[in-house]
Amino acid sequence: MDSNLLEHMMQPKNYGVIENSDSEGIGKNPHNGEKVIIFLKVKNENEPIIEDIKFQAIGCMTTVIAGSIITSEAVGLTFERGDALVGATLGMLDSIPPEEAACSEMVALALKAAMDTYMERQKDSDFPMITYKILNNCATNEENQQGSENE
C-alpha cells in the first residue's frame, strides 16, 4: 500500500466541522444511508474561493480517504475550478468498480452541494443545505445478490 494512502488513513486531512461555516452540502448514498457532509468557508472577492474546507463522513474508510484527498485538492480553488475538480472526479468513476466509485462520488457530490448551497445563499441567506444522491451503489454484486434473495 502506498505511503501517501497510509498517511490519509492515519491522519485524514480536513476531517471535522467548521463552526460558522458559510455553506454546507451533503452527498448521500440512498442505498445504505452513508453520507458525507462538507463545510466551506468562502472568501468572495471577484469570485468565490474555497478558503477552508472540512468534511465528516458516515461511511467506510474508502470514503474517508476520498474525502481527505478531494478536500486537500479543493482548498484555495475558485468555485469554477472546484466545479472542474468535481467533474474530473465524477469522470474517473467509470473506470473503477461501482463499490469503490460510490465513495468518491459521495465526496464529489457533497462538494458540489456545498458550492451550490453557497450560491443559493447569495440570493436567499436562509437557503437550506443541499443534498445530492449518488448513482453508484457501494454494495458488491455478491451483496446485491444476497439482498435480493433476502427480499
Binding site: 491522519q11 476531517y15 474517508v64
Partner: peptide, 8 residues
Amino acid sequence: GILGVPRV
C-alpha cells in the same frame, strides 16, 4: 507502524 486516532 500505522497507529492512527479514530476520527470524530
